[in-house]
Nucleic acid binder design. Structure first.
Lengths: 188, 188
DNA sequence: AGGTAAGATGAGTGGCGACTCATTTTTGAA
DNA sequence: TTCAAAAATGAGTCGCCACTCATCTTACCT
């Protein structure tokens, strides 16, 4: 389809700067921040932003995609390292901590106000968690009756809560512990 | 201070209509909905809205206050009816279900984008939950080591999650069950 | 080096939304 | 019934923001 020739060097550079700036700005000021501010932060004229991302929505979508990809990649790392029984818990924790730092993450699973079209990446998230859940179930570290949609719902809740509530590190840790305990099998 | 004489009859009527309309509109369209739309829905000119609430922020604040009061009142009812050990769980559930229906509730504890000044009502919420938590602890229906701030954090999470995620009734019920289980003492 | 297409620039446009105010209508008290 | 104060009205102001486009600049190919 689009056999686009590669971008010119300066265009590539600018595209990257815009994405980086946008991620910062939106994380700080929320998705309502103006495109002008992104342009300024990226040290680029506003027209350039619109050349790369014809719509504000497109810009948001691009950031999200980037972010999701990074978070998705982390899953592989965690799965490779620790014992499979713990990976689910570790990844869950990792995602919640990320969302506490990077504001934008909130729109991870259900895309907040500036909704973006259903993405294959969110399917990938669900699938990843499916795998982690199965592994944990097999290792006996989760209750056998916990379902995937419940895990996703809890994740979404924890994520949004951590973001909106601005919990302290300590509170976040304790709350998360409590929450994850809900998934663990009860000691006979 | 403000020894305001009572509002004229038509003014009272309009104030009430505006509040009702605003609650609907903001629940449907989110806090970004225009004041004009509120006015139209209330069948009132836009100037009238601004006479009663000089600022959009004021209007939002008034709605929130109303809503919080209603939710706060419900606590008394629940506490009077059931056994004290269950009241905490019932109220928690009630609040989450409300937020699933009434969009605006999200800003209950931590006020979302359109932040409003620290309110005595949110202190009242915390206090209410403190009471419920103590009662439940005494009745042995919660783990003795669960702290109040953890309960509030979980509530905020569940509330925001239910709102943003648009969970089905079934999913909400199951997720809530899981979450509340986290608070219950483990069977020896 | 020179040419050209891709890209960058930023003043300008249009629309929308919060808020104002001169004017008209309504209320309630005398 | 009368009338002044209170309230309602809604066209208009102002500022902000997404998005455009005529013009200038730059990368890259020969």
């Amino acid at each position: 389809m689009t056999a686009d020739r590669p971008l010119r060097a300066d265009a590539q550079r600018n595209r990257a700067r815009i994405l980086a700036a946008a991620e910062q700005v939106f994380a700080e000021r929320g998705p309502a921040a103006s495109t002008q501010e992104v342009a300024t932060r990226a040290d680029v004229a506003i027209g350039t932003v619109f050349r790369h991302f014809p719509t504000k929505r497109d810009l948001l979508a691009a950031i999200m995609k980037d972010l999701r990809q990074r978070l998705l990649d982390k899953a592989g790392t965690l799965l490779a390292d620790g014992p499979p029984g713990a990976a689910l818990f570790d990844y869950f924790t990792f995602l919640v901590e990320s969302s506490a730092k990077v504001g934008t993450v909130a729109g991870l699973l259900a895309e907040e106000g500036t909704a973006i079209e259903p993405d294959e990446q969110i399917a990938a998230f669900t699938q990843t968690f499916g795998t982690l859940l199965d592994a944990a179930r097999e290792a006996g570290t989760v209750r056998p009756d916990v379902r995937l949609d419940e895990v996703m719902a809890l994740l979404s809740a924890a994520t949004h809560g951590a973001l909106a509530g601005a919990w302290s590190d300590d509170l976040r840790r304790r709350t998360l512990a409590l929450l994850l305990d809900a998934l663990r099998p009860r000691r006979s």
